[in-house]
Design a protein around this nucleic acid. Structure first.
Lengths: 412, 412
DNA sequence: ATCATTTGTTGCTTCACACAACATAATAGT
DNA sequence: ACTATTATGTTGTGTGAAGCAACAAATGAT
């Protein structure tokens, strides 16, 4: 884990701080300690981990208990002295993650401890589909998954991952080229108010969240990296200090449209020779002479079988990735590249080669160059659904007091 | 001004917050309000601008007064009611900015209100120089400038801008290719302990600070942009939310080594076809058939006179800039590009062309594309010295309580 | 001269955390 | 079995920062 290096600078104070700010901060701190610990922690453990006193921690933990963020488990004897009362993430607090993809819809209920409580997928071909038909399907699917989660769950809210350009602040989709969707506001179109507030995010951004934070509130794995999500095109995200970088319009990290060859083929994005034209799934299929229905595993098999055309297009793709990543790694001065989606499934075919090439070409080369690894979730076809749910849960962990007071008010 | 978009995400709480944290936060807030206001503000004005009460503001302002960050000025009648006691930045609090360049050393004493109190330059040729000789010269120059500032100034510390790769945390220079300097630790080599703690920074990073924050504590102008600093090579910085992005090793934003042509000429950095090979001053001089002693204004004159070779190399440079910036702008999703150094002096020759080309090629094109402007400080040959001093002063504004308590302890 | 209006200060309250003492519940030693 | 030891968690008091309300101060309007 590595938060120090690329971590964003402390933002300037914009609003006055009151004692409520202090409580919010420390509640969040304690919640993260409990959620992030590999094993259950007692109040005394938390006090030792923070600079807070046992009495203060006790009060904060009690607040988190009433808010349903954490849960006491059976006392454990073991050592000397009074046995501790361990506290863990409360798995009754859940968020729903939704993902709309070219070939499937998927809803996944994720608990605060990171477990998948329930899940359902709807397969289909959603390229060129009508959002007014698809989104209600997605909403209904989500509702079924929430119901399958059982009675005693508390749903915090819903995250929706879409393969397109998204403005997270307003929750609008600007364009989803691979689905053929125009600008739209997805939340009402889901027609499922019972799913709570809906956070909309880009598919690659959401998937990148699961790399930096596989479990809510528990940063793990690289915290500074470039994530490449290969789907039909190539999505990307830049994670700095464990946070996904957004940029002005919300598409920071979109490495798929970094220019690889100024004289290359035109791209619908307006530029020429974009990485996506060389390493996107469509590009690989075409160059290898495979049908567009061929999966990436078919392409990988052709490569391993020594197919000339396939190997040629793989080499072109690797070269394009090299060029794009050299620029990106130098520009962001970032120590790691993580391959997801179809690029992750090609992992062994390209990762070592790519790592060697980057090591000899980036400024950081003399320090070993960036690592190139495959996303551990590559076998999961919908990591973005998990990431969307985690992002929603993160919102609660970020501002526990707001949630606790809200829950308390709702209860009476 | 535009801080919302590219602003770094709020970092996760890492340490427990106490009431001291609260005071520090609000002191910083009040200081920034006073320093950032275009006109002097009374305590009541500050209370209105923040959500703080007049009584709280009064106490905070009193603390800032004792710390020497702000100063009361003559009461101003004007309107109805009791006349206010306006408070402004105290110009007796100063930081020293030092800059070592290929052709000069410069020391500049900058006050908290942004005024330049004193300045001295030493011209020379420092390419291939011995840092053990040059840095003491720089230190002595700084000492003279501090003395010239007068008796009643309080020196907070010193910032040193160097044309090379720097690790700000440790204050070490890793490499300064254009000076021919190896890895070294500049602070002791200045041999000037009276200059206080020395903050070391990269030249482009420091210069970029003056674009986002021309006066300490007063964000002004673009807050999210890519800065290009043309010197012998091309330095660069990425500013997000008004803060210079550092990256893992400290060279984030180094756009000079973004790859423009994968088959281009080799670059000492290890890559090929770097932007610097096409748009650096040396590259322009060579391509235009000018001697390396020719200044950028001579090159510009040749272009305006219609010189074939000069125009050709200008076109090559603009094309290279276009390619590099398309990648960078897409990757960072950033709305502005600011040209400094020799690229700024070419401003009118390249900025409009570049803006048009970017507008048609970046993802944001349909929203107007990034603006391309010339750094307002382009006539100042040492904006980095100012930026280094501002960065030091920023440290005090960021943590006023630490400074005030330190000052109080020192006084007795 | 009196009143209205705005500024800045003062005294009291509230709230969050620190500190210290204590109650609690287990193990270790005799 | 009984006591000492040790660690956990709670309680009660103190401190410090901000909120609130009342008031003193200084000026313009009537």
């Amino acid at each position: 884990m590595n938060t120090a290096t690329g971590a964003p600078a402390r933002p300037r104070p914009a609003a006055a701080a009151t004692q409520a700010t202090l409580r919010e901060h420390n509640l969040s701190l304690v919640a993260r300690i409990v959620l992030g610990a590999p094993t259950a922690m007692s109040r005394a453990d938390v006090a030792a981990a923070t600079a807070l006193t046992r009495s203060t921690v006790s009060r904060l933990v009690d607040d988190l208990l009433t808010g349903g963020l954490v849960r006491e488990v059976a006392k454990v004897g073991g050592g000397l002295g009074r046995p501790a009362t361990p506290v863990v993430a409360d798995d009754r607090l859940c968020a729903l993650g939704l993902q709309v993809n070219a070939t499937f819809l998927l809803a996944r209920l994720v608990a605060l401890d990171g477990t998948v409580v329930a899940e359902e997928a709807v397969d289909g071909d959603f390229v060129g589909s009508d959002p007014a038909e698809v989104l209600p399907l997605m909403g209904a699917c989500g509702t079924r998954v929430v119901a399958a989660g059982g009675e005693d769950r508390t749903l915090v809210g819903t995250g929706l991952a879409l393969p397109g350009i998204v403005r997270p602040e307003t929750g609008t989709l600007l364009r989803a080229p691979n689905l053929g969707w125009p600008t739209l506001d997805p939340e009402p179109m889901l027609a499922a108010p019972e799913l709570g507030p809906v956070l909309v995010g880009n598919e690659a951004d959401c998937a990148a969240v699961t790399v930096a934070q596989p479990v809510p509130g528990r940063p793990d794995g690289p915290q500074d990296f470039i994530y490449l999500s290969g789907e039909i095109g190539i999505g990307g995200a830049a994670v700095l200090g464990g946070r996904v970088m957004r940029g002005q319009h919300g598409w920071a990290g979109e490495i798929g449209h970094v220019c690889v060859d100024a004289d290359g083929p035109a791209c619908p994005c307006g530029s020429r020779g974009c990485l996506e034209r060389y390493a996107g799934l469509r590009a690989l299929q075409t160059a290898a002479g495979l049908p567009t229905t061929a999966g990436i595993d078919q392409f990988a098999a052709a490569c391993r079988a020594g197919d000339e055309a396939a190997l040629q297009s793989l080499a072109t793709a690797t070269g394009a990735l090299e060029t794009a990543l050299v620029s990106a790694v130098n520009l962001l001065d970032i120590p790691a590249v993580v391959l997801g989606g179809h690029l992750g499934r090609l992992g062994a075919l390209i990762a070592p080669d790519l790592a060697a090439r980057l090591g000899s070409r980036v400024l950081a080369g003399r320090f070993g160059g960036p690592t190139v690894t495959v996303d551990e979730h590559v076998e999961d076809r919908a990591p973005a659904a998990t990431g969307a749910a985690i992002t929603v849960l993160e919102g609660v962990v970020d501002r526990p007091a707001a949630w606790i007071d809200g829950a308390r008010r709702a209860r009476g």
